[in-house]
Design a protein around this nucleic acid. Structure first.
Lengths: 207, 207, 207, 207
DNA sequence: TATGAATGAGATTTCATTCAT
DNA sequence: CATGAATGAAATCTCATTCAT
């Protein structure tokens, strides 16, 4: 990357960080471009050199933040030796829940802004992003656990991801109806059931 | 209710209906008070006789619409003779999913705006609302299926409600990753697992 | 006064009291008719049965409150035996300053809203108001101290009244540049000078 | 000052002049931001780049206009050779009264909007404002007339300034109870008395 | 008389976007 | 590339006044 490209990238990051910072505190619709550029310490016009509008930066942010979480969890999973698909997904889910607990503001991106099917499409399109090949991870995942003969793996991923976020949202945000730690056992048990469902014979599913 | 009070109630409903109508088509933040009053056919100032601001009417709407769905599903459940808790919840869930499929705009109220623990608190506070006693329903529910010795029933309700909405959102809105009908079998199976989890011995849950 | 007239008078007083109460706390322009009727506990339409608008009630209030102060001071003066005009005016001024200190909100009516020459005209027009003849007081005043051969008595009254209020405003409102008690000696000395000026030969005045 | 800063200053002045112009004709509360920007020939949003609201511009205006009057009178005083404190203050007062007579709209800023003690504090804080050092004038004033051993000079200034404005207001605005020229001799005599009071021994003052 | 819901003109304020520097 | 003053359309909100009851 050229020096000038690098400088551009830095300013873009400056705006993204500022926006993330503000979106964590107030809703996107209550945030103005002015809020963002003031926080970022750049001129108002500069914003339009990098983004079209608020929606544009918000989407970019949602995608990047979500991507970061997934990559972080995936890398962590790579480092441990787990050969069982249920344990692998539990590990993965647990890592994500812990990340969300540590940065609850991410829940709103994770919870509200992401269309998971679209997100998976984006990952598939995306080449080796900088230093991590997410698509390879995605493809390898089911190879690694190739003994698993999963039915509708995409639906499974979709259901599990949505389930994790939707069941953790309130517990993390306001401890209701219980703490995250208290709800975790339920979540893992249910994830197990979901996986078993997709491992089992399809005739069973359709009644 | 006096004639004048009745008229006031009607005007309030006029505004609520107009807001619902518009919120179904565009986001709350893209809707102006002017849009609402124009649709309702009342003067701008009139809006402020009934609501403080957009957030205020949106919350009222979210609560009422959600309440309507719940009551409708509950009434339908009352009319059938089901003595098994799993079947009852399946019936209830199915009814809700069908309502949401028929009126996808409700998903946004259901999906985004409701804090279920707060909603249940509101129901508990609420007296016999007009013609239906929702609290009584809530209390009766577990009595009726009294054989069921549920662990953490509130957590179960919370998880199931969140699960239903989060897993149906995309299928209803854009048929991804599959149609509602295709995902339903998975949903019911998973609900069964969730209930079984809460019926089983707690030592089992906590690993 | 008939019973019905009395009732009307009571409702008018209700509105006046409410307006006084609110005007004491916020400026007239920041007060709405709604504020007044809410405080008074009457309907909005009722306001217009008694007053034309905000200006109307504000003026009525300024006049009445100022009139009350003057009458109170005059009655108090009547009760003491003072035969010297300087002492009489000192006594009168002191009484007014004490009234204003006890009810600083009156300063704004006294200070801002009153045109003294117009006020004196109004007193002259006014008949025996209820139980006190202010005009008689005004006429008697200079008779009582008839030895005093005052030049331009109206200018003197004007200057003294304006002087009292303008020099007391800040001391009463925020103790600046000193307390009322600290500025009083100066005020009385200056009043004495003003009176002496009007007692002295006119050739002296015009240089 | 940079070219761009200069342009900003000009636009600020444009708004101030427009506001002054309108406030001279109608009350502040009857003036809208729209009136001001229309008169100034700038866009509505531009107003908010320079002022927070109407109160904000009105205060700035009150301060600046009053400051201008004081500086004008002070400069005029500098040009004449007067070594007697009484004559100096008479000259100063006369100059101010003449300015107010020539621009009666200033009376409302002078009369209503200024807290003299606060104004003097502001002058003390203010550095050499552009081309005139008001604080130096203030400090020099009593040095120049150093023979004068004044008691409570700040109270004296306060009383005199308030007295001038309050006794001139009606005469200038509507010639009541007499013309400005007719009341002037009284005013100067009274000012003399006030100064003498502060020159005399304090035991005398406190009775 | 008294009421208070309804009105809608108009005031305040915000803010995405442009463009000259 | 970067700036930030300027714009003005549009949003929010207020409130004096009316009028049917």
């Amino acid at each position: 990357m050229s020096r000038i490209q690098n400088k551009k990238e830095q300013k873009r990051k400056l705006l993204m960080d500022a926006a993330y910072n503000i979106f964590s505190k107030k809703s996107i619709s209550n945030t103005s471009i002015n809020d963002i550029v003031t926080k970022a310490g750049v001129a108002k016009g500069t914003f339009y050199l990098y983004f079209n509008d608020k929606i544009n930066i918000a989407n970019a942010l949602a995608y990047e933040k979500t991507y970061d979480i997934i990559v972080k969890a995936a890398r962590s999973l790579e480092r441990v030796k787990i050969f069982n698909i249920v344990d692998a997904i539990h590990y993965f889910a647990n890592n994500i829940i812990d990340q969300l607990s540590a940065a609850p503001e991410l829940l709103d991106y994770f919870f509200n802004a992401i269309d998971w099917t679209e997100f998976i499409d984006l990952i598939k399109q995306k080449k080796n992003s900088g230093d991590f090949d997410c698509l390879k991870l995605y493809n390898d995942f089911f190879m690694k656990y190739k003994k698993a003969d999963l039915k509708d793996p995409e639906i499974m991923i979709f259901i599990i991801m949505r389930f994790i976020v939707s069941s953790c949202y309130s517990p993390i945000k306001n401890g209701k109806p219980c703490s995250v730690e208290n709800i975790k056992p339920y979540i893992f048990k249910i994830i197990t059931s979901i996986i078993n469902l997709h491992l089992s014979d399809s005739t069973d599913i359709m009644k």
